[in-house]
Structures are given as structure tokens and as C-alpha cells.
Amino acid sequence: MNRFDYIRAGSVAEAVAAHAAGAAYLASGTNLLDLMKGDVTRPERLVDISRIFGLDAIETLPDGGTRIGALVRNATLAHDPAFAKAYPAVAEALLSGASAQLRNAATTAGNILQRTRCQYFYDTASACNKRQPGAGCDAIGGVTRTHAVLGWSEHCIATHPSDFCVPLAGFDAVVEIEGPAGRREIPLESFHRLPGDAPERETELAPGDLVVAVRLPPEAKAFAAHSRYLKVRERTSYAFALVSAAVGLTFAGDRIGQARIALGGVALKPWRARAAEALLAGAIPSPELFARAADAALQGASPSGDNAAKIDLARRIVVRALTLAQAGTPARIPALPASPFGA
């Protein structure tokens, strides 16, 4: 671990002012400190935002939406009864991620800014365009069972690991940012970037930008009665998603009103499936319809290596999540959240 400066910011303004080239914001450090210990990132300065007052509130906004402070812990948010009732798929996604200990520490902003779990990004002896632009991508042709099947490029085939971001993308969350250029907002769906030819640029944040909150719009609550997050993983808990899906439906009589679908584990960003949503809107639900929606969601998917099974799996999980959402949101989050074994 390199030597670094440590500055504890007392306010957002102080934090932004303390940021400089080579600096990183530190909240709980559940990802950043691991990366530093592994020499994957070597920030010269840590600006600790964890003690900034007022960033840890969950607020209901006048328009009925919800504003989640950057420092709200994942566990706090998931266990907030009003939040879990209004956004059950978001709560379920949060509880399906990491371990209880990590969820108790990890923050809202930290979660959306977590780095990929691509093994070649973590292995500093491997070439990685994210770590070192232009170095190449050793993942290509390597161990790729978990890598991207959508939106990847010849420069990077990594995936975004967050569960939380999947329903956030699906339900039109907005990221609030304070930075050197003042305050601005970015829809979560376009917050993360696909790799293209610049995989080192992972988000639309500019240097010094600080995420201060994530906002869910009031419209997202309309899906609360038919909303699920489902995640396929290789052990029952404490595993990243091979693929996951967040789904919300509204109904008008026997027809679907609106649909929201986003996929996780398939791309370098949470993958909003708008074509599938359009296909579902106004249609009468049926297994065939759900299968067509799943095909639409995976339109353009292609293996980036030894991971063709993920495409098939992603289709299947869309169908299952739609089926479960149609049946209705469970009264309580299952004991095994987002699991096929959660019932």
C-alpha cells in the first residue's frame, strides 16, 4: 500500500475543495481499502467523507419520491420499513448483496461506485485497460465465465458487480452530484459508461465530483405490488450475481400497464431493457410474452469468451422474474433474498 495523505472533510464543500488529482473519496472503504491493499489503486490522497453531517438521511420528497443520502448504509436502507414497502425490489437487491457485515458498512454512494470484480482488474500482473489505459485486456482469452455478454468491447469485457444498481436503473433513479462545477444530476441509467475504447472512464463523474444522494422518483412506487429482484449465483449467499434481473410491472385489468426491466451481471453497467419493456406494455401476460420479452432484453448479446451460458441464463431469469412479479411482491422480503430458494 502506497503512502497517502488523509483529509477528513467536515462538509461537502470542504470535501470537494480538498479533492485534487490522484485523490479518492473514502466512505466506508469496503471496496476502496481492499483495492489499495492489493495495489490495484494507489490514491495519493484520501478525502474521508464518512463524517459529513446530513449525508445519511432517507427523505421523502414533496413530490413523493425518495432521496437517499450518499452515506446511508446498505443495511439501513434495506431495513427501512417505508422504503422497503415502496421499493421492494431495491430492498431485496440490497439484501442479496455481499454479507451482513459488508451491508452494515457499505454506503449508497460507495455501492454505485464499486469497481468491477473482473479478476484481471484485481490481478496487478495482468494487463488491464481500466487500471492502465492502453495496456490491453488479459481477460480476453482468459478465464471469462463471469464476464460481459452485452455492451463489451475489444478493450474491456468486465461487468459491473452491484445488485443495488440494477433496480435503481430499472426504476429511473437519479444521481445527485456536487463538484467543482457545482451541482448536477445524472440518471443512474446513464451514470455508468460502457467500456468502448476508454474503459478507464467508468462513470460520467468529472474529477472531484462527489455523489451526495440517489433519488428514486415517485413513479417508481407504482410498481411496488409487482416487483422483484432475482439473482442467480454459485452459492446461496455471499456471491456476486452470474446474472440478475430487476423487474416491475403495473396492471390495468388483465393487461400489463407498464414494465420495468434491468439486468445485472451482463455488462459493465446495469442494463436497462427498454425494448423488452415496450413489448410488455399493454400486453396480456403469458409465458410466451415473457419469453419474447426475454429475447428482446438480450437482443445483441454475444459471448465475450467462455460465457455463452450466461445469455441463456439471463433469458431464463428475465422470464422467471417477470413470472414472480406478475404473481405479486411477497408480503415480506424472503429469508434468502433474490434467491430461487427464497420462494
Partner: peptide, 21 residues
């Protein structure tokens, strides 16, 4: 990775052993 001979999941997040669940 058969090209480098390195183990690519040398940590307890990715080298899976059973958890309680």
C-alpha cells in the same frame, strides 16, 4: 489462467466455499 499459470480467484470472495446458507 493456463496462459500465465496464475490462480485467478485467490480470495475468499471468489474462491467459493459453502456459507451458512
Amino acid at each position: 489462467d493456463t496462459r500465465s499459470g496464475r490462480v485467478m480467484n485467490p480470495n475468499l470472495a471468489e474462491y467459493h466455499v459453502p456459507v451458512n446458507a
